[in-house]
């Protein structure tokens, strides 16, 4: 009786169903749009606005925001050298996003690869690799970043390297824990009974189950790394002028806090909004990538759309 075919809609186009699920969660939808805007700024901003953003203009020094008389570029005000803040924020998006993305991608790839080996193999590596995570975790990470960047030169590559190393344990531990659990699941056993090779089991059966968790963490971690980079830049041991990131902009505005609050306020707001969007998107991802929970979004989307 209960053994009749359930009525489930045929699979829609992949992209369309993703968009529908995104639409079902309004805050995440707005967050995704905002992140797209940031991404576009990061990709083409410097090419378009670099000249404007670096042109000093004595008449625009610490120009107050919301004053359109000096042109729309100064709508958010000008900095201490009269450079338009809006243009500078757009240009700074590139370094900010690139460094965070570099660190996240590097730590995710290395961390999850190590985690897969540690979780799947039953040999010596399964013992050694988790200890590696313990070692990194017991470093005081930000202090370490400070000293390493102090002794090496604070270039973008070094910042990515330092941040990536400190974030490896997050992926390593999560992947290992998940793999240890997934490895014992019955569908993995079923694949082994069919004669599937280790590579096939890892990449076809285990990785797809672990990947959503990793993506969710990576989104969250992107926000974390961005904040860490901003802190380093703020302390003066991250990106150095004339290169610019949002964190550095906040630092550069600090001496003028009492007279021109907007110098630090706007780049700070850019950081907050971006991290907030990443957090919202990460929450959405957690639901959307879970086959058992996805229906919430699928159904919600239809009702609203």
């Amino acid at each position: 009786m209960a053994d009749i075919a359930p009525v489930t809609p045929a699979e829609k186009g992949r992209l369309r169903s993703v968009l529908a699920m995104l639409w079902a969660d309004k805050p995440a939808f707005v967050a995704a749009i905002f992140l797209c805007v940031v991404l576009v700024c990061a990709l083409i901003g410097p090419a378009l606005l670099d000249a404007v953003a670096t042109k000093q203009n004595l008449r625009g020094r610490n120009a107050p925001p919301f004053d359109l008389s000096k042109g729309w570029l100064l709508i958010l005000g000008g900095d201490a050298l009269g450079r338009p803040l809006l243009a500078r924020i757009i240009v700074a998006a590139q370094n900010t996003i690139a460094i965070a993305a570099g660190a996240v991608v590097a730590s995710m790839i290395v961390g999850s690869a190590l985690g897969l080996v540690a979780g799947y193999s039953r040999g010596r590596w399964a013992q050694i690799i988790p200890r590696l995570a313990d070692v990194i975790m017991s470093f005081p990470s930000l202090l370490l970043a400070v000293i390493v960047l102090y002794m090496l030169e604070p270039s973008a590559a070094n910042i990515i390297l330092v941040l990536a190393i400190t974030r490896i344990p997050v992926y390593l531990r999560t992947t290992r824990a998940e793999v240890l659990e997934v490895r014992e699941r019955m569908f993995v056993q079923a694949a082994r009974v069919m004669g599937a090779s280790d590579a096939r089991i890892v990449f076809r059966h285990i990785l797809p189950v672990v990947l959503p968790t990793l993506l969710t963490i990576a989104t969250l971690d992107f926000a974390f790394v961005m904040l860490a980079e901003s802190s380093l830049s703020f302390l003066g041991i991250g990106i150095q002028a004339p290169e610019v990131t949002w964190g550095l902009m906040v630092a550069q505005g600090r001496p003028y806090l009492t007279s021109a609050w907007w110098l630090s306020f706007w780049p700070g707001l850019a950081i907050i909004l971006t991290t907030l969007s990443l957090n919202l998107l990460s929450n959405w991802l957690r639901v959307a990538l879970d086959p058992q929970q996805r229906w919430r979004l699928e159904m919600g989307g239809r009702k609203n759309g």
Binding site: A223, S230, S231, V250, L257, T258, G268, T275
Partner: peptide
């Protein structure tokens, strides 16, 4: 909590100084 989790502490610190101290 989402906003709190997204806020860079150095920025909050200087905004707080401007607001409450200055």
């Amino acid at each position: 909590s989402l906003i709190g989790a997204s806020a860079p502490d150095f920025w909050i610190a200087i905004v707080a100084i401007v607001l409450f101290s200055v």
